[in-house]
């Protein structure tokens, strides 16, 4: 019971507020309810299919296979794989660091690590799908097309900068 109140209490309160606003013609409440209803309809009209696709992606893509081919000798293929591998991820940026650690352990190059990190932050397919729904395909495509070369450039830059600097990715959960 307590759990439900915590999860849905605020929503219930707002619904009651909305209904009362309509009964008593409270202009602010009516406006807020209308804005919310617009946003809610927009959300419910496409978000469910996005998450179904996210689930499917997870069931089909063998993520483990990518990790092997991102080493220093992987060249263009490694760069491409870093971009593609990042696109099949989900979750916030801080969730990427543990993955980066695993990639580092498996011998991924500095360049590919930073390309992966960059593309993870802004090219994940689930996110791009939601972005398309809200801001349109033109916006999403423009952003993706501009973003990829910039992240590849950052990857090369980091690689160049860290060349003789003994760069390590450490796992904070392991050391203490």
């Amino acid at each position: 019971m307590k759990k439900y109140i915590k999860e849905y209490g605020f929503i219930l309160l707002f619904v009651i507020f909305g209904i009362l606003s309509y009964i008593y013609s409270f202009a602010f409440g009516i406006k807020a309810s209308k804005t919310f209803l617009d946003m809610f309809i927009e959300m419910i009209s496409f978000i469910p299919i996005v998450f179904v696709l996210v689930g499917l992606l997870d069931a089909w893509i063998p993520k483990k296979k990518f990790e092997k081919y991102m080493g220093p000798e992987s060249g263009l293929k490694g760069t491409l794989l870093s971009v593609i591998f990042s696109m099949f991820q989900a979750g916030p940026l801080y969730g990427a660091f543990p993955i980066v650690y695993i990639l580092y352990k498996k011998g991924a190059s500095v360049k590919n690590i930073f390309i992966f990190l960059g593309c993870f932050s802004s090219l994940k397919i689930p996110m791009l799908t939601i972005e398309t729904g809200y801001l349109g395909i033109e916006f999403t495509l423009a952003r993706a097309i501009i973003t990829v070369p910039l992240f590849i450039a950052i990857g090369y830059l980091m690689d160049y900068y860290l060349k003789n600097k003994d760069f390590k990715v450490t796992d904070p959960t392991e050391s203490n």
């Binding site: 978000i47 469910p48 998450f51 179904v52 689930g55 997870d58 069931a59």
Partner: peptide, 10 residues
Amino acid sequence: QGVNKGIKIF
């Protein structure tokens, strides 16, 4: 399996 997982996340 995938569809169920998606619904669960949603």
